[in-house]
Simulated assay, not measured.
Amino acid sequence: MIGLLVAFFSSFIATLLIIRFQHLHSHMSADSDLSGPQKFHKISVPRIGGISIAAGIFTATLFRLQSNPSSSIETILLVCAIPTFAIGLTEDLTKKVGVKTRLFFTAIAAGMAAIYLGALITRLDIPGIDYLLALPGVALIFTIFAVTGLANAYNIIDGFNGLASMVGIITLMGITYVSYTVGDPLMMYLSLVMAASILGFFLWNYPRGLIFLGDGGAYLIGFWIAIITVMLVARHNNISPWFALLINAYPILETLFTIYRRKIHQGKSPGQPDGIHFHTLIYRRILNPICNAQKGDVFSANAKTAPYLWVLTAMAIVPAILWWQSTNTLIIYSAIFTASYVWLYKRIVTFKTPAWMHP
């Protein structure tokens, strides 16, 4: 418990200091581009919130090492996360690091975690696929691809105040519950220490958006969640591998749908930004027309967007933690969630938003 408090207060204070002294670093750290298709803030804001989250898990790891010198797994995980966090932070400061470079460094981090932590996806409970994963090197390649994809997915959904950070917290709480159920205190700790670190940032980010997560923060959260999810399934054979998919269903589906929309439907590069993500549509088609006139309201259209996606995230996480042992049930709910996502997206994009979604 003390370690979690250390993580929270370290992150909280680090965020406070970044905001308080932003006049000293805003020329490098501020997100001053207000014109992009995914930009919805009206003033320049620091986008280095990932530093706060990194500070939280770093200080908590140091504290844990002092009380338990044999605690090596969390230290290794922290070291493995350095490449993806560092390249994301570099993009936040320079605005010159391309998507392919960020994915390359994240893939390196995923490979390190797979090798040194045994974070490997070795089964999907699908005949034929499991045979392929048993072949030398296939599981490693597939794991690197999956972890890199989820880390990037958190960067994709990081579009509004409190969105990616609270999705991360909700997901981590689900992982904590299943870890508790199977009696794995280490996975509980790794989940909770990241959740505490995110919370220290979240209180400054939501609802007013005084600081942004940035690529460094988004990649760090996504990578950490991906690795501990893979590790949890690898450490307990009674947990279905589809638990890892369903508990991360929202960011995964948003990424896959984005690739389909840009590459297949629009004929563009999947790495190019656009303004028709699910969260963007909720903002533009549902909330912005209503909230635009509410000047001075701390819960602006931007702040009111994230709760819609928090609920969507919970729609996948609740069945994931209820039926974490049953592959067949999780596959069914994965299909239901996918169909619901596509149906809602189509209704909103065609100006047929269900009445119950309007505030």
Rank of each mutant, 00 (worst) to 15 (best):
K304N: 15
I282H: 03
A195N: 00
S32K: 09
L103N: 04
T353M: 14
S300R: 08
T143L: 10
L133I: 11
F202T: 03
S10E: 08
T59V: 02
L203P: 07
I332F: 13
V182S: 07
I115N: 10
M1W: 10
Q66I: 05
S340V: 10
R235H: 14
L93D: 08
L62I: 13
D274R: 00
T327V: 12
I228P: 13
A151Q: 11
I18V: 15
F337L: 05
R102E: 01
L89K: 02
G36D: 09
T90C: 15
S70M: 14
L124C: 07
I225T: 10
G217P: 12
A110M: 08
D92P: 05
S44Q: 01
G36S: 05
L17Q: 03
F145L: 15
A151Y: 05
S240C: 14
I87W: 12
T84I: 10
G3D: 10
K95L: 02
P307S: 00
P37M: 09
V167M: 07
N68I: 00
L199W: 06
H41S: 11
G271I: 03
Y206G: 13
S70I: 09
F201N: 03
G174V: 11
M194P: 07
R347V: 01
L322W: 12
S165M: 02
D158C: 06
D297C: 10
V99A: 15
I282Q: 03
F63I: 00
L93C: 12
G159N: 07
A164D: 02
L78A: 02
P319C: 02
M1N: 12
A60N: 08
S179I: 04
N248K: 07
I129G: 03
F201P: 01
L65C: 07
G183V: 10
I211A: 01
I211L: 03
A293S: 15
I129H: 00
N155I: 03
G88M: 00
Y116H: 09
V182Y: 13
P185G: 11
F351N: 14
A14T: 15
Q22V: 00
L287R: 02
S11G: 15
V138W: 05
H265D: 09
I282M: 13
R102T: 04
F351I: 08
A293C: 03
I13C: 04
Y206I: 05
I157M: 01
A249I: 14
F351S: 14
Q294V: 07
I43K: 12
T176Y: 10
H25E: 00
L192M: 15
L172E: 12
I169Y: 04
G98F: 11
A335P: 02
D274C: 04
G296N: 07
G174E: 09
M173L: 15
I144W: 05
R47E: 08
L24D: 14
G137E: 13
Q66Y: 14
A339P: 10
P127K: 01
S10M: 05
S179Q: 00
A314N: 01
T181N: 09
W310R: 07
D130T: 06
I170E: 08
Q272W: 10
H23G: 13
Q294I: 12
G200D: 06
K263H: 11
T15G: 04
F63K: 01
E74Y: 08
L256C: 12
F202H: 13
Y189Q: 02
L132G: 11
I227V: 15
I73D: 11
T255K: 06
P127R: 02
I321L: 09
A55Y: 00
H25N: 04
L312W: 12
K96Y: 12
V311N: 04
